[in-house]
């Protein structure tokens, strides 16, 4: 069971209660909710906020691919996965991504949560433009995506 969505902050907000509701089930004995938030410092620069950009269709596609491969790669069959990532300006301490996981047991929930965020970092076309105090904003250097 997967929920995957890009939240355009110009139109709506990201809602932790939606994640909690999606993964809530008596089938599962372990749940983890991961929040990515904007921190105030990066490479000795005072960050004031981040603007996120995304290729919406490709991001959702990548979330689905990551979810679908978990059966085979991690042997985790029973699970609820909620992934939302924002697009737009995010201030300090605010949420940029929610990954909520529910599994029958804690070991697989921890493994799955970590796996999903690491794969998103490597594969999902999302970009960050950091804004700084007294310095010009800049797009962060990332990792190139390879053609299959």
């Amino acid at each position: 069971m997967l929920h995957a969505k890009i939240i355009d902050l110009a139109k709506e907000r990201i809602r932790p209660e939606d994640a909690e509701e999606f993964i809530s089930s008596s089938k599962f004995g372990a749940s983890i909710v991961f929040y990515g938030t904007v921190r105030e410092n990066n490479e000795n620069k005072k960050v004031t906020g981040i603007t996120y950009d995304a290729h919406n269709e490709m991001v959702v596609k990548s979330f689905k691919e990551i979810y679908n491969e978990v059966d085979e790669k991690l042997k985790i069959k029973s699970k609820a996965v909620f992934i939302e990532h924002v697009k737009g300006y995010v201030g300090l301490g605010e949420v940029s991504i929610i990954i909520a996981i529910a599994c029958p047991h804690r070991a697989e929930a921890y493994t799955l949560s970590r796996y999903i965020i690491e794969e998103i970092k490597k594969r999902s076309p999302i970009w960050k433009k950091e804004h700084y105090q007294n310095e010009e904003s800049e797009w962060l250097k990332g990792n190139p995506i390879q053609a299959n």
């Binding site: 990515g36 995304a54 490709m58 076309p125 999302i126 970009w127 053609a147």
Partner: peptide, 29 residues
């Protein structure tokens, strides 16, 4: 990336009017 949201190689042939997305190095989350 092509209109159908697939990453394409340098050899991909553009044979009609279409949208192509440029995907710089990524780093979200």
């Amino acid at each position: 990336c092509s209109e159908d949201n697939n990453i394409v190689s340098d050899n991909y042939i553009i044979n009609k009017d279409q949208k192509i997305g440029i995907i710089p190095p990524i780093g979200g989350g």
